[in-house]
Simulated assay, not measured.
Amino acid sequence: MKWFLPRVAHRLLTGQLQELVDVMAPAVVLIVDAGGVAPAALASVHGLELVA
C-alpha cells in the first residue's frame, strides 16, 4: 500500500490520467470533502467511467 498513494499523486500531478485509470478498480468510488472551502459533490460517485 505504501507505493499506491505516491504513484496516484504523481500521475495526477503529471497529467498521466490513462495510467491512473489503469490502476483503478472497476467499482471505484469517489468521495469528496472540500472542507467547506469549495463546492463538492453532494453524493459519492460510483464506477470507473464516472470517476475518470
Rank of each mutant, 00 (worst) to 15 (best):
M1A: 04
M1D: 00
M1G: 01
M1E: 00
K2I: 01
K2C: 00
W3I: 06
W3F: 06
F4D: 00
F4N: 03
F4S: 02
F4M: 08
L5R: 08
L5Y: 02
L5W: 00
P6F: 05
P6I: 05
R7A: 08
R7Q: 08
R7S: 06
R7D: 05
V8Q: 02
V8I: 10
A9G: 00
A9F: 05
A9E: 12
A9T: 10
A9R: 12
H10T: 09
H10E: 12
H10K: 09
H10R: 14
H10M: 09
R11F: 10
L12P: 00
L12G: 05
L12K: 03
L13R: 15
L13T: 14
L13E: 15
T14I: 03
T14M: 08
T14K: 07
T14F: 12
T14H: 14
G15R: 04
G15I: 08
G15V: 04
G15Y: 06
Q16V: 07
Q16R: 15
Q16S: 09
L17N: 12
L17A: 14
L17V: 13
L17W: 14
Q18V: 05
Q18S: 15
Q18W: 06
E19M: 09
E19D: 15
L20E: 07
L20V: 02
L20S: 02
L20K: 02
V21A: 11
D22S: 14
D22K: 13
V23M: 15
M24L: 13
M24G: 01
A25Y: 03
A25P: 00
A25L: 01
P26S: 05
P26N: 08
P26K: 03
P26F: 00
A27S: 12
A27C: 04
A27P: 00
A27V: 06
V28P: 04
V28M: 04
V28H: 03
V28E: 01
V28G: 04
V29Y: 02
L30H: 10
L30M: 11
L30K: 12
L30I: 07
I31Y: 06
I31C: 08
I31P: 00
V32H: 09
V32Y: 08
V32M: 12
V32K: 07
V32E: 15
V32S: 08
V32F: 05
V32P: 01
V32R: 13
D33S: 09
D33G: 04
D33E: 12
D33W: 11
D33H: 11
A34Q: 11
A34C: 12
A34N: 13
G35D: 04
G35W: 04
G36V: 07
G36K: 01
V37E: 10
V37L: 14
A38M: 13
A38F: 12
P39H: 07
P39D: 12
P39F: 10
P39I: 02
A40T: 09
A40G: 14
A40Q: 15
A40E: 14
A40F: 02
A40P: 01
A41M: 10
A41L: 11
L42E: 15
L42V: 07
L42A: 14
A43W: 02
A43S: 13
A43T: 11
S44W: 06
S44C: 03
S44K: 13
V45P: 03
H46N: 11
H46Q: 09
G47H: 09
L48F: 06
L48V: 12
L48Y: 08
L48Q: 11
L48M: 08
L48W: 08
E49H: 11
E49N: 10
E49C: 03
E49G: 01
V51M: 02
A52S: 15
A52Y: 11
A52K: 14
